[in-house]
Amino acid sequence: MSVRLGRIPLALSVPATLAALLLVLPLVTLVLDTPWRDFGGHLVSEAVRDALWITGLTSVLAVVACLVAGTPLAWVLARVDFPGRRVLRALVTVPLVLPPVVAGVALTTALGRTGVIGGPLHELTGFAVPFTTAGVVIAHTFVALPFYVLAVEGALRTSGEAYDVVAATLGADRWTTFRRVTLPLAMPGVVAGAALSWARSLGEFGATITFAGNYPGTTQTMPSLIYTALQGDPAVAQTLSMVLLVGSLAVILGLRHRWLVAP
């Protein structure tokens, strides 16, 4: 600091240090405690390969679901004036603060074998959503979608409606305007939202295990496997955790240039 405003008060520096320690220390100990020597050996088991595959598949599918359905929802919230818009916007953000286990229970009431939608679906097709890989994707999408929608809606509001108006005066209908003007200008928000929702989906545990269970090969994701492994072999749990930590760090580094750097 170039300006001398006086001594930093202890009342601020001590809690700040504690907060920083709480955030950093567990990560450091995780790195130090990871059995690096057997790192590769812990990763070759079939359960790990299955969990990596399920996690990769479901998190990518969840991001695709966010892109396909979340982008239009964000557009509607940012651009269309309709009664109940504020209410809908508030409802969209609820899963952000909802305990994931509660999200799992809520999904069961809607899509479970006897759920409001899941019941008739099961009667008609014999297909039940819970405890399937599709159920994992739905649970992931449910928890990741709010992050995505909020990021994209923010970007749409920032880029503003002025360019949409210009496009309309040039003869573009709303679909053309969306494709050629609105979406390209909101692209930074789309990328950030996709990365956020992917990271959220990657770590998803509570809603998934409640709604879709923990079956190796179909619904057991990395977080579920880590939870299972920790009860038997902590070394495996640490190894798998390292893999997820590296994945999360990759997201942060990828986003650093976009909006994680404070001015």
Binding site: A162, Y163, T169, V181, P184
Partner: peptide
Amino acid sequence: LPVPARRLGYVVQDRSLFPH
């Protein structure tokens, strides 16, 4: 008539060329 259906040329005050 909806805006896109009008045979219109409109140069707005702050230019508003599409930046991308």
